[in-house]
């Protein structure tokens, strides 16, 4: 893993974004503050303002809908899976519209963190009843009254479903990051390297030719 290689990769030649070009582009430490900023480069095809705007409008709505699916799953079609898939759809949309930097910028946390927290949630829901001598996954129900919502029923299964939700989002994000964003970055990098190599070679060859042609007489006729 040598992500620390110095040769430049001005992948995104945004003026005034020095951290952009110095940091490793595929790192999850990418800046998070921008939101469909000017350095957008879509995953497919040329940049489309319409798509960007639509995305901007849609993403929060999609995320909200996914939470709804998660919460209502116990009584209606939906649940953790569907919710998670919908939520990740939002991120995929962002990636498609804004390219990999958009994807990285908009993440609440690294996919691995989501996966780990999701797993822990699942395990804890499963394992907590053991501590009080109950079987695994024994469900617990809390009912209480909240000022605004009235009677609220909270099931331990909801925690579990939240775990599922997080894991699904984590999966899709890491797959998109790997198969989409990272590969893109790599190809770009490889192209740059190729170019650099070619130019370096060209320069060396030119230098060699210059050196060879320096002693003028009869050099051109020697077989090389």
């Amino acid at each position: 893993m040598s992500t620390d290689r110095p040769e430049g990769r001005p992948l995104v030649a945004g003026p005034g974004t020095p951290d952009e070009s110095s940091g490793p582009p595929e790192s999850w430490e990418a800046p998070r503050e921008r939101w469909l900023s000017t350095v957008v480069r879509p995953a497919f095809g040329p940049r489309s303002v319409l798509l960007e705007v639509v995305t901007r409008l849609l993403v929060p709505a999609i995320l909200l809908f996914s939470v709804f699916l998660l919460v209502s799953g116990h009584n209606r079609p939906g649940g953790g899976f569907a919710g998670g898939l919908v939520a990740s759809m939002a991120y995929v949309l962002r990636y498609v519209a804004g390219g990999r930097h958009e994807l990285l910028a908009g993440l609440p946390m690294r996919p691995n963190g989501l996966l780990a927290i999701g797993t822990l949630l699942g395990c804890v829901t499963a394992g907590l009843p053991l501590l009080v001598g109950r079987p695994v996954f024994d469900s617990v129900k809390w009912e209480f009254t909240l000022p605004l919502f009235g009677e609220v029923k909270l099931l331990s299964a909801l925690f579990f479903e939240t775990g599922v939700y997080l894991i699904v989002v984590g999966l899709v994000l890491s797959v998109v990051a790997a198969l989409g964003a990272r590969m893109e970055a790599e190809e770009e990098e490889a192209r740059i390297e190729e170019r650099e190599r070619a130019s370096l070679l060209r320069r060396r060859r030119a230098a060699a030719r210059a050196a060879a042609s320096a002693p003028p007489p009869a050099a051109g006729e020697e077989p090389s």
Partner: peptide, 17 residues
């Protein structure tokens, strides 16, 4: 199990494992 959607109840409770 506290739910009406049987499939979801199975997934999240009956067969949560």
């Amino acid at each position: 199990a506290g739910g009406d959607n049987l499939v979801n109840v199975i997934i999240a409770d009956f067969r949560a494992l």
